[in-house]
C-alpha cells in the first residue's frame, strides 16, 4: 500500500467522518487545523483510495488536493532576522511552503550577512541538519554568493536548494560545492510577493523543493524505514499522554525519516525508548531517540530495514 500526501479542506460540519475514513483506510492525519468554520487536514492516504475519499467528502463540500510536501520539515535559512530579509522574502517563502503542507522552520544565522564576516556555527549547522531539506535564501550579487556558499555549506548533510538573485545557470556555475537545487531570480527584495510573476517564482521554488524531496523519498524507499513516521506519530499520541498537553502548533512534527517530539528530552526519552510498538518491539529497537538542538526537544530517527531487519 503506497501512502501519498494530500490535503483535505472542508467545513467543520461532519469532518470527523473524513478523519474516521482516512484512519479506517490505513492512512494517517499528520496535522489538523481548525480555522473558524473551516478544517484543513494534512494527511497520508492510500493512493488507490483518494477517489473514495473525494466521493465521500463531496456531499459535505470537502476538497482533496495533492500536497507533495506533507510530512516534511523544511529549514528556510535566512541570512539574518534584520529588516533586510524579513518579512520579504524569508517569511513569504516560509509561509508559501506551509500552505502546501510542509512544516517550515526559519533558521536565521548569527553571522549570515556580509562576505568576509559570514560564518556558520555548530548549533546552526546541527539545527539545519535536523531537517529534511534546507532552502538557502541568498542575496543579489554573484560575487557574494560565490564567496559565501562554501562557508555556509560546511558540514551540511541534508539536501540544499539555493535561491539567489542571479539566474539559475549562474548559480549552478558559482555555487561550490554543488547543491541539489537552484532557483534563480529570487534574491533580496523589499516588497510583498503578490504580483503574478512573483507568485510564479514562489511556485518555482516549490517545484524545485518537491523535485529534490522526491529524489530523497526515492532514496529512502530503496531501503525502507522500519516504521512509518506517521504511524509512529499516532502511536506516541496514544501512548504518551503528555504530548496532548503541549501547546505548540505541531507537538509531533513528522519528517521523512523521523519525528520531532516536542517534549523535554531528559524526562521523556527513556519512556519513548521503552514504548512498545508491536509484538514486543520497542521504539528504541528500531529508532534512535536523540536530543534535538532545537530547545530541549527529542528527535526520533527511524532506522532503515537494513539495520534492524524489521518492518512493522
Amino acid at each position: 500500500m503506497t501512502l501519498v500526501p494530500v490535503t483535505y479542506k472542508g467545513g467543520i460540519y461532519q469532518h470527523d467522518i473524513v478523519i474516521d475514513l482516512i484512519e479506517d483506510l490505513g492512512g494517517y492525519v499528520v496535522q489538523k487545523h481548525v480555522l473558524a468554520q473551516e478544517v484543513v487536514l494534512q494527511c497520508f492516504v492510500p493512493r488507490d483510495d483518494i477517489e473514495l475519499i473525494r466521493e465521500i467528502s463531496r456531499p459535505i463540500f470537502g476538497e482533496v488536493t495533492d500536497s507533495p510536501l506533507v510530512g516534511t520539515e523544511i529549514a528556510i535559512v535566512s541570512m539574518s532576522l534584520e529588516i533586510h530579509h524579513l518579512p520579504h522574502p524569508s517569511c513569504d517563502i516560509a509561509e508559501y511552503v506551509r500552505r502546501i503542507g510542509a512544516k517550515s522552520n526559519m533558521v536565521s544565522l548569527a553571522r549570515g550577512p556580509g562576505k568576509r564576516i559570514t560564518g556558520l556555527n555548530d548549533e546552526e549547522r546541527d539545527v539545519i541538519n535536523e531537517h529534511d531539506i534546507a532552502v538557502y535564501l541568498m542575496g543579489n550579487f554573484e560575487t557574494c554568493i560565490e564567496h559565501k556558499m562554501p562557508i555556509l555549506l560546511r558540514g551540511i548533510e541534508v539536501p540544499v536548494v539555493v535561491c539567489g538573485g542571479p539566474d539559475k545557470e549562474t548559480l549552478i556555475r558559482i555555487v561550490d560545492p554543488p547543491v541539489e537545487g537552484y532557483v534563480g531570480g529570487v534574491g533580496r527584495f523589499m516588497r510583498r510577493t503578490k504580483e503574478a510573476d512573483q507568485l510564479d517564482k514562489l511556485d518555482e521554488i516549490i517545484a524545485e523543493i518537491t523535485r529534490v524531496l522526491e529524489k530523497k523519498r526515492e532514496d529512502v524507499s530503496k531501503d525502507p524505514l522500519s516504521v512509518s513516521p506517521a504511524r509512529l506519530m499516532n502511536l506516541i499520541r496514544e501512548r504518551v499522554p503528555a504530548i496532548l498537553e503541549v501547546t505548540s502548533p505541531t507537538p509531533l512534527t513528522v519528517q521523512m525519516a523521523g519525528l520531532r517530539v516536542k517534549l523535554p528530552y531528559d524526562t521523556f526519552a527513556p519512556e519513548l525508548r521503552r514504548m512498545e510498538i508491536e509484538d514486543g518491539i520497542a521504539l528504541g529497537d528500531i529508532a534512535e531517540v536523540l536530543p534535538s538542538r532545537m530547545r530541549d526537544y527529542i528527535l526520533v530517527k527511524v532506522l532503515p530495514f537494513s539495520e534492524t531487519n524489521t518492518v512493522i
Binding site: G187, F189, R191
Partner: peptide, 18 residues
C-alpha cells in the same frame, strides 16, 4: 553586476517609497 544593479534599483525604489 548588471543583474545586481537591477535588483538594487528596485530595492532602493521600494524602500524610499515605503
Amino acid at each position: 553586476e548588471p543583474v545586481g544593479a537591477e535588483y538594487y534599483k528596485q530595492i532602493t525604489n521600494d524602500v524610499l517609497l515605503d
